[in-house]
């Protein structure tokens, strides 16, 4: 699913708002999430998961073309931890699919 498919899905179900309104809303949500992480803050969505920053220590890297060593500074990278409900639901589907395969075989 892409961002535009997400916008269309929401617009179909949210009949009060135009596609344009939903598009602006989705873009605003994503922008606010990016701003929050870029400011070093966390995002916590119950039933979905949380986003935070993980630190990567400084290291010596290598230019793959020349083999030359380069010092890379420490940095932060975005990290997502799925919440219990998302973990369980994604996994429940796998179990259902496997059960269906077993049924077909028996």
């Amino acid at each position: 699913m892409t961002k535009s498919e997400l916008i269309e899905l929401i617009a179909t179900k949210q009949t009060q708002l135009s596609v344009k309104d939903v598009e602006l809303a989705v873009k605003t949500i994503i922008e606010q999430m990016s701003e929050t992480l870029s400011a070093g803050n966390r995002i916590e969505i119950r039933g979905f998961g949380s986003f935070s920053l993980h630190y990567r220590a400084p290291r010596i890297g290598r230019n793959p073309k020349t083999g030359e060593s380069v010092g890379l500074a420490g940095k932060y990278v975005p990290h997502f931890k799925p919440g219990k409900e998302l973990r369980d639901r994604v996994n429940a589907f796998l179990e259902q699919e496997q059960a269906a395969v077993h049924d077909d075989q028996s």
Binding site: M1, T2, K3, L6, L9, I10, K13, Q14, Q16, L17, V22, A25, V26, I29, I30, S34, I45, G47, F48, E85, L86, R89, V90, A92, F93, L94, E97
Partner: peptide, 27 residues
């Protein structure tokens, strides 16, 4: 409306993942 749209945003992403379908949010 604002509350509904935010709920739907995360519900739809979660449903897509439940269906084993990747979600790509450009940017």
């Amino acid at each position: 409306e604002a509350k509904e749209v935010v709920e739907m945003f995360f519900d739809e992403v979660r449903s897509s993942l439940e269906r084993n379908e990747q979600v790509k949010l450009s940017g």
